[in-house]
Each structure stands twice: as structure tokens, then as C-alpha cells.
């Protein structure tokens, strides 16, 4: 199981590429501008990633998106980010 880290908004090549390289059990963490994808209106951008989609608390908060994110996205702080990298065998960053 890999952790994919995405720091770009949904409508970008980086996001498309991350999704096409995502394995069936891999997890996807949204950081930086990636957290724009956590908005409920962007839900359709992450088909099939239910239960495996995470967003970084501090990046949501800084952008006024905390509390506005879609249900089903798991919000983690930076310690949770480290914990995700512990649990996943390896990480791949998409930017």
C-alpha cells in the first residue's frame, strides 16, 4: 500500500496522473493547493477513492476550507501525515 501526496487542485495534470497511478488499496493525501479538492463541489474529481482520501488540517484551515470539506474525507494534522507515511510502505508525490 502506497501513500500518494497531491499538492495541486483537481483540474491539473498532476491530479489526473496521481489518480491514474493510484493502486486499488493506495491512499491519497491532499496537501497545500491539493486541499481545494476536498470541497464538496469537487467530489466527482476523486471517483473510487472513498475511504482512502485524506486532507491536511492546517492547509484546509489556512485557506478557510476547514469545516467546508466533503463528508468522507479524513482530516489529519501534520502528526497524522507522519502516521500515514509510517503505515504506508512508500510515498509518491504529485505536484
Amino acid at each position: 500500500m502506497l501513500l500518494h501526496i497531491l499538492n495541486r487542485a483537481p483540474d491539473t495534470p498532476a491530479c489526473r496522473q496521481a489518480l491514474s497511478a493510484l493502486g486499488p488499496a493506495d491512499r491519497l493525501l491532499l496537501i497545500e493547493d491539493g486541499v481545494i479538492g476536498a470541497l464538496p463541489a469537487q467530489r466527482a474529481a476523486f471517483p473510487g477513492v472513498e475511504g482512502r482520501l485524506y486532507a491536511l488540517h492546517e492547509d484546509l484551515e489556512a485557506r478557510g476550507l476547514l469545516g467546508r470539506h466533503a463528508d468522507g474525507i479524513q482530516v489529519v494534522d501534520v502528526e497524522g501525515f507522519v502516521a500515514l507515511t509510517e503505515a504506508c510502505e512508500r510515498t509518491v508525490s504529485w505536484y
Binding site: L2, S20, A21, G23, P24, D26, E89, R90, V92, Y95
Partner: peptide
């Protein structure tokens, strides 16, 4: 196959 390749290498540099 891309997902399999990512999983099959010790290190991935993007």
C-alpha cells in the same frame, strides 16, 4: 500497470 510499477520499485522519484 502503472500502479503495479509504482508498487514494484523500492524507490520512486517523480
Amino acid at each position: 500497470e502503472m500502479a503495479e510499477e509504482l508498487a514494484a520499485h523500492s524507490l520512486v522519484l517523480n
